[in-house]
Amino acid sequence: MDAIRFDGVHKAFRRAGIDFVALEKVDLAIAPQEFVAIVGPSGCGKTTCLRMAAGFEFPTSGEVTVDGRIVTAPGPDRAVVFQQFALFPWKTVFENIELGLRNKGVPKAERGDRVAEAIALMNLQGYETAFPHQLSGGMQQRVAIARAYVLDPDVLLMDEPFGALDAQTRVVMQEELVRLARRNPRTVLFITHSVEEAVYLADRVAVMTRRPGRIKEVINVKPVRVAEHWDDHARIEDVMDLESFVHLRTRIWKSLRDEKGSQDR
């Protein structure tokens, strides 16, 4: 059974009395423990797709299912990393990350360990008692990622989680995420504007058309990655130098560029 399925999903928002079509017949199936990245022009409906899988938004027609059940509400089985972080400003870094575990009823001692682990993973040591506004944008984003990761959810929904990071931190986080994803695979729906990031991280990359969004094509990266032993390289730049990587990246980039181009006309 697929972990996440979009079946003929159509989404219209009503704005000022007019139906505004954001998504038009989106079909996509994500297998359990598969890492799928979505790339597409701005405003094509990537966030809308992710929000429907999370249970914040519902299709106008069609179905979104997670583990075979139609999504009706948000829940901690599907942890979300929001494009706007969405941290709780009145909670410290520790409390922000801890809340999900408290809600699950995890005992206090274990919570402390798991939060500390997530904080270490995201390189936030020393900021446990800081409030979000005392952190840089990149650090806030890391807290948001830690808050999702600490739940150890079956499904991770990440909306441009590295968007606010500086180039160095971003690379570190990407390498870290690859290590995690390969060692401890989860079903991941990952939205990004960076084709390189998508190719480096994902098993498959879905390219969306410009609005109204559809899935234009899905490129299978994993067979190439496995055949060419990308994961033997610890550093992202070494992978990005490989001919097989460049080839895939260029192919996706061209596909995406056709969409961006058509927006200008």
Binding site: P74, G75, P76, F82, Q84, A86, R147
Partner: peptide
Amino acid sequence: YVVEAASMLGT
């Protein structure tokens, strides 16, 4: 977003 984050965390 804050409300959504809370419900996502199962509060």
